[in-house]
Computed example of a mutant assay.
Amino acid sequence: METKYNKVKQDIKSKILDGTYNSNQRISSENELMREFGVSRHTIRVALGELVNEGWLYREQGAGTFVAERTKEGIRPENKIKNIAIVTTYISDYIFPSIIRGAEAYLSNQGYQVSLYSTNNNHENEKRVLESILSQDVDGVIIEPTKSAFSNPNINYYFNLERLNIPYIMINAFYDELEPLCLVVNDELGGFMQTEHLLKLGHRNIVGFFKTDDLQGIKRMKGYIKAHRINQIPISPNNIITYSSEEKTRKAPDELKKLLSSEEKPTGIICYNDEIALILLDVLREKKLQVPKDVSIVGYDDSFLAQASEVKLTTINHPKNEMGETAAKMIVQLVKGKDGPNRKFDVKVETVIYEPELIVRSSTAEL
């Protein structure tokens, strides 16, 4: 069980890291902290004492307790190895090892140390990761947003990265309110291409499965809808299935089973990614349906899963290694620009949007 003084300590530390308390700002008095946390003066003093000893706070006699200066500019030894943090929603799953390898190979070759973090697509985990990054001597951050379709509760941590002059770029998606440099696939066009492919093959009853807590899923669903509209094909309300990260292994297969039990069975399936496509392939096998004879299915990302089963998936490519390497090159440019002789120089680094490509394999056929 967490001690009372440690709870006070971590809360104050979080307020420093998210920018609520700025450098050299006076924090609340002991009496105010006692009322806020409902603890004794001794508990407050123990918490503040540890934060002073660890360099987070300093005291001025008769004036109060203040936040220590956190900016590291000008104090780094010239021969110190620079450190880049890479944060993804997952590390060892799906396409993420390829993205990380692309970035890590370039950064290591350039003499940078790499720290890897995973949020597991959870905002509380993202908060802990950002606090860890802000507590360390990190020079730049490559980050994949967590639940990018939602308003982010950790936005202040990104503001603090900016205040501390720590450059960051985002991959796969971005927080719209920050308007950051990013590397993304044109997912709306990708979703459009998935759907139009099946429409050109004569399919009309096409069900789409989209993970909608991430921006990629929202945009792919938009492309699915746009393809139907442009081709003047009505969409059944039952044919758009949305799910969250936590629901993917449960809701998607359950919903497909319901649709396959109806009179109007779908002949085509559009998937948020290759991972969900393989989950749905298991349902089709269970129902004794053949792909593509009975049902055509399209994945997304051209991951290793696209060719992992006996059914080779038609899918949309994802630049994976290239995205990782390009992100690494961009963050190095930003770090060098920040630490160069003219720090106000506007480094020419721009957002990268990759155009999708349809890769046709044996999982789709004419109706």
Results as ranks from 00 to 15, higher is better:
N6M: 13
V8G: 05
I27V: 04
S28F: 09
F37Y: 15
S40M: 00
R41T: 07
G49F: 06
E54W: 03
W56G: 02
L57D: 07
R59Q: 07
T65M: 09
F66Y: 08
K72Q: 15
P77S: 09
K80A: 02
I81F: 06
I81L: 13
I84R: 06
Y90A: 14
I91M: 14
Y94E: 10
F96C: 10
I99M: 14
E104K: 15
A105F: 11
S108K: 15
S108P: 04
Y117W: 03
Y117I: 05
N120L: 13
H123N: 12
N125V: 02
E126F: 05
E126G: 05
R128H: 09
R128F: 08
R128L: 12
V129C: 06
L134R: 04
D139N: 14
D139W: 03
G140Y: 08
V141I: 07
V141R: 01
I143G: 10
K147E: 01
S148Q: 05
F150T: 10
N152Q: 04
P153E: 04
N154Q: 01
I155P: 07
N160R: 15
L161W: 09
L164F: 09
L164Q: 15
P167Y: 03
P167F: 06
I169F: 06
I169R: 04
I171C: 13
Y175L: 09
E177Y: 11
L181E: 08
N186T: 05
D187H: 07
Q194H: 01
L199T: 00
K200E: 02
G202F: 00
T212A: 03
L215W: 10
K226T: 01
R229W: 06
R229P: 04
I230P: 02
E247W: 08
K248G: 05
T249R: 12
A252R: 09
A252D: 02
S261D: 15
S262K: 11
E264V: 13
K265I: 14
C271G: 02
D274S: 02
I276H: 01
L281P: 08
V283L: 10
K287C: 11
K288R: 14
D302N: 14
A308M: 14
V311H: 10
K312V: 08
T314G: 07
I316T: 01
P319K: 08
K320I: 11
K320V: 10
N321D: 13
L334T: 04
D339H: 11
D346K: 15
V352P: 04
V352G: 02
V360W: 04
R361H: 07
S362G: 13
